[in-house]
Design a protein around this nucleic acid. Sequence first.
DNA 1: TCCCGTTGCTACATTTACTGTAGCGAAACG
DNA 2: CGTTTCGCTACAGTAAATGTAGCAACGGGA
Lengths: 111, 111
Amino acid sequence: MARQVPATKSGVRGSRTGRPIMALLDLLGRRWTLRIVWELRDGALTSRALRTACDEASPTILQTRLTELREAGFVELTEDGYGLTALGRELFATFTPLQRFAERWSKQDRS
Amino acid sequence: MARQVPATKSGVRGSRTGRPIMALLDLLGRRWTLRIVWELRDGALTSRALRTACDEASPTILQTRLTELREAGFVELTEDGYGLTALGRELFATFTPLQRFAERWSKQDRS
DNA sequence: TCCCGTTGCTACATTTACTGTAGCGAAACG
DNA sequence: CGTTTCGCTACAGTAAATGTAGCAACGGGA
């Protein structure tokens, strides 16, 4: 393999703190976070309905994630249970290309 | 809070196995996975350069994730180090709206 | 040839994160 | 009342990630 590419060594590139995308990637990269946003996509769910939707994930971690998502402003607890905020719905909207990609990906040969 | 909404009880909704988006959400929801794809966005990195970019994450988990990403067909080991495949670049392309969203999100008041 | 630095990658003990089960107090019904 | 469901939490057990160290292989110098 080739030697170290100098250009990549000096700049740590994307790891600078304070970059919003990093905070977002960190939040979304925790277990169940992406799934929760996904499951709330077309309407609020009670905590227990959400648990059912999330393949009976443990209430401990769901509660933790819901708290994080609430603090992030993506989820709120309403009369109908947990639901996406306007901001949360914007976040979900960014998943649309991902969904289409997933379909293409599944038809791919990945040895 | 309102009682259980019947419509949400019967259908487990999105948790059916075999749905490609679920597999993708599961893969991307593991720690460092999103970050790795992000860091490889504009060129291949050696395993150690990637580690530097990923805030000195442990080589154990990076290796695990790289293996998973290689099996998924998103990453490949080339002459210049680890790089995104054509498919991986397509995946990254779906992050574009996310990046813009992150900027808006950071300017938001989240109490 | 011998050293030296870097590559991808792994071992292993420690720490952290998550799971699974049970159950709490409150509210909405009968 | 009793029942059921709500959001939420405790806690013991297990799985995942961290941090440190180091391996064998390759590529130059000298």
